[in-house]
Simulated scan of single mutants.
Amino acid sequence: MSTSFLPGGFRFVPGMFQYSGGAAAEPGFAIERVRFHRPVPLDEGFKRIEAYITAAGRPMTAFCACELRSPAPFTDQGFIDFNRQYVGTLERWGLFKDEVNPVARSNVCPEIDPPAGPSFHAFSFTRPADNAPPTFVIAGSGEAQEGGASYKERIVRYGETSPDAMAAKARHVHVEMERRMNVLGVSWPDCTATQIYTVHDIHPFLGEDIVRRGAARAGVTWHLCRPPVIGLEYEMDCRGVRAEHVID
């Protein structure tokens, strides 16, 4: 079941403290995505996002999703420490409260030419829009069961990167994408973009496990990136939006 976040004009899939499983615009609103031409360091990115959303006449509670780039995968504890720093600004913006975070997020690590520190790649926010089609952003997910034990204990086929293992990891992620979309009342045909993050070959399962299930109706964008935690090998996110902008 999704949860409404009325101050932002969207509903979300409840998740962990660092991010929600996805966000979808409520009736009367639409989600827009804004991508930086080059990654912007975290602190500067928060300032530029605040300026952009404010200039658009929207409250900061309209911030509903973001995409991050980090230098290298974190340890479990390192990821927790980073996330605590990250949610501090969301708390100031009126988004994060009592360990509940409505903002969807992806955070991945470029294999080539990574940023010097955690940086913003893109963000999304809501605007008023009459009679708009469904718009949504599904948060990135890697091949690990949610909650509980360490990542090592939860990762599907931990330590394996054979074609068969990668296909199993991908299937787990694809099912999770579908679960999150189902909670928000959308599905693959509603997507306008699908993004995959891995340094391993996706071609052995691209046809059967991605295209045939409908996940590539708008094509697939493959980023040569690693997921954000050591041991994860495959991540995906997707979205359905009608307005996207690129800014310097």
Rank of each mutant, 00 (worst) to 15 (best):
D209N: 11
R213Y: 09
K169V: 06
I49A: 11
A62W: 03
E99T: 12
A149N: 11
M177D: 01
A129V: 05
R154W: 12
N182A: 15
Y52P: 03
Y52M: 12
G21H: 02
A24L: 03
N107W: 00
N131C: 08
S20L: 03
A218M: 14
V175K: 15
R38Y: 14
E244M: 12
V137G: 01
P128W: 09
H174D: 01
E153R: 12
L6C: 04
R58I: 06
S150Q: 06
L224A: 08
P114H: 02
L68W: 09
P114C: 03
V241F: 02
A129N: 03
V175S: 10
A30F: 03
V246K: 13
E32D: 09
P163H: 04
G45H: 04
E160W: 01
R180N: 13
C191M: 09
Y86P: 00
N101P: 06
P227D: 05
F36M: 05
P189M: 01
A170P: 03
V100T: 11
G207W: 06
N131I: 06
W93A: 13
H203M: 13
H223S: 07
P71I: 04
A72D: 10
F12Q: 00
F136T: 00
F96W: 14
M181R: 00
A24D: 00
R226C: 06
V241H: 01
C64Y: 03
G8S: 07
A65V: 07
P14F: 13
V229A: 11
P115K: 08
I196V: 14
P189G: 02
Y197V: 07
W222H: 15
E91G: 15
P204K: 11
T61A: 15
M181W: 00
A23N: 11
A116K: 15
G219K: 05
Y19L: 08
K152Q: 12
D76S: 12
R92M: 10
C225I: 05
P39Q: 04
V156K: 12
Y158G: 08
I230G: 01
R180P: 03
R38I: 07
F74D: 07
G240F: 03
G147Y: 11
S124I: 02
P204Y: 09
G117T: 11
A149H: 11
F29D: 04
D43K: 13
T221Y: 08
V220A: 02
H203R: 15
A25R: 06
V175Q: 12
F74L: 03
G142A: 15
V87Y: 15
G147M: 10
E44C: 07
P189E: 01
A104Y: 00
R92L: 10
V246Q: 14
V246F: 12
A167Y: 05
P41L: 06
R212Y: 06
N107Y: 02
S150L: 09
P128D: 13
A30M: 12
G21A: 06
Y86V: 04
E67V: 15
H245W: 10
P134D: 07
C109Y: 09
G240I: 01
G57T: 04
G185T: 07
D76V: 10
G88A: 07
V229W: 13
A139W: 00
H245Q: 14
Q85W: 14
H172Q: 08
F82C: 09
G117P: 00
P133T: 11
A30W: 02
P39A: 04
